[in-house]
Nucleic acid binder design. Structure first.
Lengths: 126, 126
DNA sequence: CGGCATCCGCCCGGATACTG
DNA sequence: CAGTATCCGGGCGGATGCCG
Protein backbone atom coordinates (compact mmCIF):
# COMPACT_ATOMS: atom_id res chain seq x y z
CA UNK A 1 0.00 0.00 0.00
CA UNK A 2 1.30 3.39 -0.98
CA UNK A 3 1.91 6.27 1.36
CA UNK A 4 -0.90 8.14 -0.31
CA UNK A 5 -3.57 7.03 2.13
CA UNK A 6 -1.37 8.05 5.02
CA UNK A 7 -0.78 11.55 3.83
CA UNK A 8 -4.52 12.05 3.80
CA UNK A 9 -4.07 12.56 7.54
CA UNK A 10 -2.11 15.67 6.77
CA UNK A 11 -4.06 16.90 3.77
CA UNK A 12 -7.31 15.62 5.24
CA UNK A 13 -9.40 18.66 5.95
CA UNK A 14 -7.46 20.94 3.71
CA UNK A 15 -4.65 21.11 6.23
CA UNK A 16 -6.66 22.72 8.99
CA UNK A 17 -5.84 20.07 11.61
CA UNK A 18 -2.15 19.92 10.91
CA UNK A 19 -1.94 23.69 10.87
CA UNK A 20 -3.74 23.85 14.18
CA UNK A 21 -0.86 21.98 15.74
CA UNK A 22 1.78 23.78 13.71
CA UNK A 23 0.39 27.07 14.94
CA UNK A 24 0.98 25.80 18.47
CA UNK A 25 4.47 24.31 18.27
CA UNK A 26 6.03 26.22 15.42
CA UNK A 27 6.94 29.32 17.29
CA UNK A 28 10.52 29.70 18.32
CA UNK A 29 10.35 28.27 21.84
CA UNK A 30 7.38 25.98 22.52
CA UNK A 31 8.96 22.66 21.66
CA UNK A 32 12.11 23.54 23.55
CA UNK A 33 10.13 24.37 26.69
CA UNK A 34 8.03 21.22 26.41
CA UNK A 35 11.18 19.13 26.07
CA UNK A 36 12.74 20.87 29.05
CA UNK A 37 9.64 20.31 31.18
CA UNK A 38 9.83 16.62 30.36
CA UNK A 39 12.46 16.46 33.12
CA UNK A 40 9.65 17.15 35.56
CA UNK A 41 8.22 20.03 37.56
CA UNK A 42 10.25 23.23 37.17
CA UNK A 43 10.16 26.79 38.44
CA UNK A 44 10.04 29.84 36.21
CA UNK A 45 13.61 30.74 37.00
CA UNK A 46 14.87 27.24 36.32
CA UNK A 47 13.26 27.28 32.90
CA UNK A 48 14.74 30.69 32.26
CA UNK A 49 18.18 29.25 32.93
CA UNK A 50 17.77 25.94 31.15
CA UNK A 51 16.37 27.35 27.93
CA UNK A 52 19.34 29.26 26.62
CA UNK A 53 18.68 32.62 25.04
CA UNK A 54 15.00 32.98 25.80
CA UNK A 55 13.79 36.33 27.08
CA UNK A 56 11.58 36.66 30.13
CA UNK A 57 8.79 37.95 27.95
CA UNK A 58 8.83 35.03 25.53
CA UNK A 59 9.06 32.50 28.36
CA UNK A 60 5.98 34.01 29.98
CA UNK A 61 4.00 34.22 26.76
CA UNK A 62 4.86 30.69 25.66
CA UNK A 63 4.01 29.25 29.06
CA UNK A 64 0.68 31.09 29.06
CA UNK A 65 -0.22 29.66 25.67
CA UNK A 66 0.78 26.16 26.76
CA UNK A 67 -1.30 26.51 29.90
CA UNK A 68 -4.21 27.81 27.87
CA UNK A 69 -4.00 24.81 25.55
CA UNK A 70 -3.87 22.41 28.47
CA UNK A 71 -0.36 21.15 27.74
CA UNK A 72 1.22 22.63 30.85
CA UNK A 73 -0.06 23.09 34.40
CA UNK A 74 0.83 26.14 36.47
CA UNK A 75 0.83 26.03 40.26
CA UNK A 76 1.36 29.13 42.38
CA UNK A 77 2.57 28.62 45.93
CA UNK A 78 1.46 31.27 48.41
CA UNK A 79 4.87 32.07 49.80
CA UNK A 80 7.39 34.85 50.00
CA UNK A 81 9.33 34.95 47.83
CA UNK A 82 6.69 33.70 45.40
CA UNK A 83 7.19 30.30 43.83
CA UNK A 84 5.54 29.19 40.61
CA UNK A 85 5.99 25.72 39.21
CA UNK A 86 5.26 24.41 35.77
CA UNK A 87 4.73 20.80 34.71
CA UNK A 88 3.55 18.93 31.67
CA UNK A 89 0.00 17.60 31.69
CA UNK A 90 -0.84 14.19 30.22
CA UNK A 91 -1.61 15.89 26.92
CA UNK A 92 1.67 17.75 27.10
CA UNK A 93 3.61 14.58 27.69
CA UNK A 94 1.90 12.91 24.75
CA UNK A 95 3.49 15.50 22.48
CA UNK A 96 6.97 14.25 23.31
CA UNK A 97 7.04 11.10 21.11
CA UNK A 98 6.01 12.81 17.84
CA UNK A 99 8.32 15.68 18.71
CA UNK A 100 11.15 13.18 19.12
CA UNK A 101 10.31 11.66 15.76
CA UNK A 102 10.78 15.08 14.24
CA UNK A 103 13.98 15.69 16.20
CA UNK A 104 15.33 12.35 15.02
CA UNK A 105 14.60 13.27 11.44
CA UNK A 106 16.29 16.62 11.95
CA UNK A 107 19.45 15.13 13.42
CA UNK A 108 19.65 12.63 10.59
CA UNK A 109 18.93 14.90 7.65
CA UNK A 110 19.79 18.47 8.58
CA UNK A 111 23.47 18.09 7.62
CA UNK A 112 22.44 16.98 4.14
CA UNK A 113 19.93 19.80 3.95
CA UNK A 114 22.51 22.37 4.95
CA UNK A 115 24.86 21.03 2.31
CA UNK A 116 22.17 21.18 -0.36
CA UNK A 117 21.34 24.70 0.69
CA UNK A 118 24.95 25.85 0.52
CA UNK A 119 25.39 24.24 -2.88
CA UNK A 120 22.24 25.94 -4.14
CA UNK A 121 23.38 29.33 -2.91
CA UNK A 122 26.79 29.07 -4.55
CA UNK A 123 25.05 28.01 -7.76
CA UNK A 124 22.72 31.00 -7.91
CA UNK A 125 24.86 33.64 -6.19
CA UNK A 126 28.46 33.20 -7.42
CA UNK B 1 14.76 4.37 31.18
CA UNK B 2 13.05 7.72 31.51
CA UNK B 3 12.12 10.04 28.70
CA UNK B 4 14.75 12.44 29.91
CA UNK B 5 17.51 10.99 27.79
CA UNK B 6 15.25 11.13 24.78
CA UNK B 7 14.41 14.78 25.12
CA UNK B 8 18.11 15.52 24.98
CA UNK B 9 17.65 15.03 21.27
CA UNK B 10 15.50 18.10 21.26
CA UNK B 11 17.35 20.17 23.85
CA UNK B 12 20.67 18.74 22.74
CA UNK B 13 22.56 21.63 21.24
CA UNK B 14 20.47 24.26 22.86
CA UNK B 15 17.69 23.61 20.39
CA UNK B 16 19.62 24.57 17.29
CA UNK B 17 19.01 21.32 15.43
CA UNK B 18 15.31 21.11 16.18
CA UNK B 19 14.88 24.75 15.27
CA UNK B 20 16.67 24.19 12.00
CA UNK B 21 13.93 21.80 11.01
CA UNK B 22 11.16 23.89 12.52
CA UNK B 23 12.36 26.83 10.47
CA UNK B 24 11.86 24.66 7.41
CA UNK B 25 8.48 23.07 8.01
CA UNK B 26 6.80 25.52 10.33
CA UNK B 27 5.72 28.02 7.76
CA UNK B 28 2.13 27.97 6.68
CA UNK B 29 2.42 25.69 3.64
CA UNK B 30 5.52 23.47 3.51
CA UNK B 31 4.14 20.38 5.20
CA UNK B 32 0.95 20.56 3.17
CA UNK B 33 2.89 20.70 -0.08
CA UNK B 34 5.16 17.85 0.93
CA UNK B 35 2.14 15.72 1.82
CA UNK B 36 0.48 16.58 -1.49
CA UNK B 37 3.62 15.69 -3.43
CA UNK B 38 3.65 12.30 -1.74
CA UNK B 39 1.06 11.31 -4.34
CA UNK B 40 3.82 11.53 -6.88
CA UNK B 41 5.09 13.90 -9.54
CA UNK B 42 2.86 16.97 -9.95
CA UNK B 43 2.75 20.11 -12.08
CA UNK B 44 2.70 23.61 -10.68
CA UNK B 45 -0.92 24.10 -11.65
CA UNK B 46 -1.98 20.81 -10.10
CA UNK B 47 -0.38 21.79 -6.82
CA UNK B 48 -2.05 25.17 -7.03
CA UNK B 49 -5.42 23.43 -7.27
CA UNK B 50 -4.82 20.70 -4.72
CA UNK B 51 -3.51 22.93 -1.96
CA UNK B 52 -6.59 24.95 -1.13
CA UNK B 53 -6.13 28.62 -0.44
CA UNK B 54 -2.46 28.98 -1.32
CA UNK B 55 -1.42 31.95 -3.40
CA UNK B 56 0.77 31.62 -6.48
CA UNK B 57 3.47 33.56 -4.74
CA UNK B 58 3.58 31.36 -1.64
CA UNK B 59 3.50 28.19 -3.74
CA UNK B 60 6.49 29.41 -5.73
CA UNK B 61 8.44 30.54 -2.71
CA UNK B 62 7.77 27.36 -0.74
CA UNK B 63 8.73 25.15 -3.68
CA UNK B 64 11.95 27.12 -4.17
CA UNK B 65 12.91 26.65 -0.56
CA UNK B 66 12.13 22.94 -0.73
CA UNK B 67 14.20 22.61 -3.88
CA UNK B 68 17.00 24.55 -2.27
CA UNK B 69 16.97 22.23 0.74
CA UNK B 70 16.99 19.16 -1.48
CA UNK B 71 13.55 17.93 -0.44
CA UNK B 72 11.90 18.49 -3.81
CA UNK B 73 13.16 18.12 -7.37
CA UNK B 74 12.12 20.50 -10.12
CA UNK B 75 12.12 19.44 -13.76
CA UNK B 76 11.42 21.85 -16.60
CA UNK B 77 10.25 20.37 -19.90
CA UNK B 78 11.23 22.37 -22.99
CA UNK B 79 7.78 22.57 -24.52
CA UNK B 80 5.11 25.09 -25.42
CA UNK B 81 3.19 25.66 -23.30
CA UNK B 82 5.88 25.19 -20.65
CA UNK B 83 5.54 22.31 -18.25
CA UNK B 84 7.23 22.14 -14.86
CA UNK B 85 6.97 19.13 -12.61
CA UNK B 86 7.78 18.75 -8.95
CA UNK B 87 8.51 15.57 -7.03
CA UNK B 88 9.80 14.56 -3.63
CA UNK B 89 13.42 13.49 -3.37
CA UNK B 90 14.45 10.63 -1.10
CA UNK B 91 15.12 13.14 1.66
CA UNK B 92 11.73 14.70 1.07
CA UNK B 93 9.98 11.35 1.32
CA UNK B 94 11.76 10.60 4.56
CA UNK B 95 10.03 13.58 6.12
CA UNK B 96 6.62 11.96 5.66
CA UNK B 97 6.74 9.49 8.58
CA UNK B 98 7.64 12.01 11.30
CA UNK B 99 5.17 14.43 9.77
CA UNK B 100 2.50 11.75 10.03
CA UNK B 101 3.41 11.19 13.67
CA UNK B 102 2.71 14.85 14.25
CA UNK B 103 -0.50 14.74 12.24
CA UNK B 104 -1.66 11.73 14.22
CA UNK B 105 -1.04 13.58 17.45
CA UNK B 106 -2.91 16.58 16.12
CA UNK B 107 -5.96 14.57 15.11
CA UNK B 108 -6.02 12.86 18.46
CA UNK B 109 -5.47 15.85 20.72
CA UNK B 110 -6.53 19.00 18.93
CA UNK B 111 -10.19 18.67 19.98
CA UNK B 112 -9.13 18.53 23.63
CA UNK B 113 -6.80 21.47 23.09
CA UNK B 114 -9.53 23.53 21.48
CA UNK B 115 -11.80 22.76 24.40
CA UNK B 116 -9.15 23.75 26.91
CA UNK B 117 -8.54 26.93 25.01
CA UNK B 118 -12.20 27.87 24.91
CA UNK B 119 -12.57 27.15 28.63
CA UNK B 120 -9.52 29.30 29.36
CA UNK B 121 -10.87 32.18 27.34
CA UNK B 122 -14.26 32.15 29.02
CA UNK B 123 -12.47 32.07 32.38
CA UNK B 124 -10.32 35.13 31.71
CA UNK B 125 -12.59 37.11 29.40
CA UNK B 126 -16.17 36.83 30.68
C1' DC C 1 1.56 28.01 -18.12
C1' DG C 2 4.55 29.17 -14.68
C1' DG C 3 6.47 32.30 -12.89
C1' DC C 4 8.89 37.12 -10.80
C1' DA C 5 8.36 42.12 -8.93
C1' DT C 6 6.27 45.25 -5.99
C1' DC C 7 3.64 47.16 -2.31
C1' DC C 8 1.82 46.65 2.17
C1' DG C 9 -0.45 45.23 6.62
C1' DC C 10 0.29 42.34 10.51
C1' DC C 11 2.23 39.98 14.07
C1' DC C 12 6.25 37.68 16.09
C1' DG C 13 9.82 38.32 18.97
C1' DG C 14 13.84 41.23 21.09
C1' DA C 15 15.20 45.03 24.38
C1' DT C 16 14.20 47.67 28.10
C1' DA C 17 12.03 49.35 32.20
C1' DC C 18 8.90 48.93 35.95
C1' DT C 19 5.84 46.17 39.86
C1' DG C 20 3.96 42.97 43.93
C1' DC D 1 11.16 35.82 42.22
C1' DA D 2 7.93 36.13 38.70
C1' DG D 3 6.01 38.55 36.18
C1' DT D 4 3.57 43.10 33.28
C1' DA D 5 4.04 47.20 30.09
C1' DT D 6 5.75 49.51 26.15
C1' DC D 7 8.31 50.42 22.10
C1' DC D 8 10.12 48.86 17.86
C1' DG D 9 12.22 46.45 13.72
C1' DG D 10 12.00 42.53 10.55
C1' DG D 11 9.89 39.23 8.00
C1' DC D 12 5.88 36.42 6.63
C1' DG D 13 2.36 36.23 3.70
C1' DG D 14 -1.72 38.36 0.89
C1' DA D 15 -3.06 41.10 -3.39
C1' DT D 16 -2.02 42.77 -7.63
C1' DG D 17 0.26 43.35 -12.00
C1' DC D 18 3.63 42.18 -15.63
C1' DC D 19 6.66 38.69 -18.48
C1' DG D 20 8.60 34.59 -21.60
Amino acid sequence: MSDYEHTCMIRGDGGRTIRAILDRICNKWTLLIVATLDQGRLRFGDLHQQVPGISQRMLTLTLRNLERDGLVSRTVHAEVPPRVEYALTATGKSLIPPALALAGWAIEHVPHIEASRTAYESRTAP
